[in-house]
């Protein structure tokens, strides 16, 4: 409860980056990181859903605790996230159909992005208050964008280089993820 806001923020962005240290949200991280043009909007959409669901999860948790029905937490959270994703999907379809098409299947799949459910669960476990939850969500969102954009940049560079035929595909992306994760380990203890 005593964690300062700057600590929570730095922690979520760098030291405990959701993708590279906690392994949350790997599906879009590996799936949509092929090009920068799709990686950035995907990151932004995820961050938006994170914010909405973080606020909703905070409110829902209060209700659940008041009525002592915490066993419904998981079901309630996932329902809220699914509706938030639906909202983003409709907004995007209206505002930018081209982007909507390029994100494809991964947009509805934000629902099953564990980073978002994970965020909602972690903020509940850590008993963050409202401001702390909000900062945590923003940090996690920025961390996700950072990871996916770095990855997309690396993969775009990789497209231009010649590689042995067996590394074509997911294997090399995973190796890259490993290296990124290694470098993010350097942030451990930051902001403490």
């Amino acid at each position: 409860m005593t964690e300062s806001l700057s600590f929570i923020f730095l922690n979520a962005v760098l030291a405990n980056n959701f993708v590279l240290a906690l392994f949350l949200g790997l599906c879009p991280f590996l799936g949509v990181s092929g090009k920068l043009d799709t990686a950035i909007p995907m990151g932004l959409a995820t961050m938006f859903v994170m914010l909405v669901s973080s606020v909703c999860a905070y409110l829902i948790n209060i209700v659940l605790v008041t009525f002592e029905i915490e066993f419904l937490r998981l079901i309630a959270y996932i329902a809220v996230i699914a509706s938030a994703v639906q909202l983003v999907e409709m907004a995007l379809k209206k505002l930018s159909p081209a982007l909507f098409r390029s994100l494809g299947i991964f947009l509805p799949l934000i629902t099953t992005n564990c980073a978002i459910l994970g965020l909602a669960l972690f903020q509940t476990f850590k008993e963050y208050n409202f401001t702390q939850s909000l900062v945590y969500a923003i940090g996690a969102g920025i961390g996700f964008i950072l990871a996916i954009v770095l990855m997309a940049g690396l993969r775009e560079k990789l497209e231009l280089s010649t590689m042995p035929s067996i590394t074509q595909g997911a294997a090399v992306s995973l190796m890259l993820g490993g290296l990124l994760s290694l470098s993010f380990m350097g942030f451990a203890g930051l902001g403490g």
Partner: peptide
Amino acid sequence: PAGGFIVLGAWL
């Protein structure tokens, strides 16, 4: 965490 990525990459 880094090991997880690398081991899975190696299996693939």
